[in-house]
């Protein structure tokens, strides 16, 4: 479990994080979203003991990261794919980390196989693609078979097959009861992968909820197609309902059940009656005032 409580951090005149609180439960994948400069990286680095917060706390498994007995066995992290010596092979990079953590060097081969990078393990990292570096980062995070994973943009540089592989891997890891916090700017991908989201903006919490709750709360208009749109529009307008035209489709600000009842009462034929679902991206942009993600 990860618990962030009233976390604040200022860099000079910039308030990076301001009284942020949220909790990440075991067995779930939680998406951590926010526009550029929202404070995501500072928060993740605070969770991992790399940044000292000015106030508040960030604890993992009940203790601050620096208080963990065997950090690599308890928490795995991917922060940036470039945090590897380019002249070292991927396998040796993992062996160095395994040695420092008191793990057998054979563990490096195991995690390389886990991330399907065995073939590239003996190549120098400077020859890696971004996707290979991401896989290497994930391998490093999995070295100690940790209970908690903190991943910053793990899908960066992965091709569609790689993204699908990552999604399946994270799902499998969460199903084992691990706690996974993942930041990503690929919102469509986040919507398919995560169970819950934490959305922050200007260092403050905007929303923390399950992905289903977030999308349900942003339910859009009812989409109606009919061979007689003018008549239906007239009928709905008489009821005081707002109707918009969009390329031959009526967008009605009324639940589909009520639209259907009005149409049935007046014998209007309907070809389509659906609810327009807002995407996570639309919800995100609405919550953050249109600012884009990192």
């Amino acid at each position: 479990m990860i618990e962030v409580e009233n976390l604040s951090k200022r860099f000079g005149k910039t308030q990076a994080v301001a009284g942020l609180s949220f909790r990440v439960e075991p067995g779930t994948i939680t998406g951590f979203l926010g526009p550029n400069g929202a404070g995501k990286s500072t928060t993740l680095r605070s969770v991992l003991g790399l940044v000292h917060p000015d106030s508040g706390s960030a604890v993992v498994l009940g203790v601050p990261y620096r208080g963990l007995d065997r950090p690599l066995h308890q928490v795995g992290a991917v922060l940036e794919a470039s945090e590897v010596h380019p002249g070292r092979t991927g396998l040796n990079h993992l062996r160095v980390l395994a040695t420092a953590a008191g793990l057998p060097r054979s563990r490096a081969d195991e995690v390389l196989a886990l991330v399907e990078l065995t073939a590239g393990g003996r190549r120098r990292v400077k020859g890696y693609s971004l996707g290979m570096r991401q896989r290497l980062g994930l391998a490093a995070a999995m070295l100690g078979d940790p209970e908690v994973l903190v991943l910053d943009e793990p899908a960066n540089g992965l091709d569609p097959a790689g993204i699908r592989w990552l999604r399946d891997l994270l799902r499998a890891l969460a199903a084992e009861g691990r706690t996974i916090l993942v930041s990503s700017h690929v919102l469509a991908e986040v919507a398919q992968t995560v169970d819950r989201v934490v959305i922050i903006h200007r260092g403050r919490l905007i929303q923390q909820a399950s992905i289903a709750e977030v999308l349900a709360g942003a339910q859009g208009a009812t989409r109606v197609r009919t061979p007689d749109p003018a008549r239906l529009r007239e009928l709905l307008a008489a009821e005081g309902v707002e109707v918009n035209d969009a390329e031959g489709v009526l967008l009605v600000d009324l639940p589909p059940e009520q639209v259907g009842e009005v149409a049935a009462q007046h014998g209007v034929v309907l070809h389509e009656l659906t609810v327009e679902r807002a995407t996570l991206e639309e919800v995100f942009l609405e919550l953050t005032g249109g600012e884009t993600t990192e």
Binding site: Y65, L68, V84, H85, L97, A100, A140
Partner: peptide, 18 residues
């Protein structure tokens, strides 16, 4: 300085936070 130049200080500190 190599640790900082290549960013390897981060994995080092994640492994050994003290």
């Amino acid at each position: 300085t190599t640790e900082f130049r290549h960013g390897t200080i981060t994995p080092t500190l994640l492994t050994t936070p003290r």
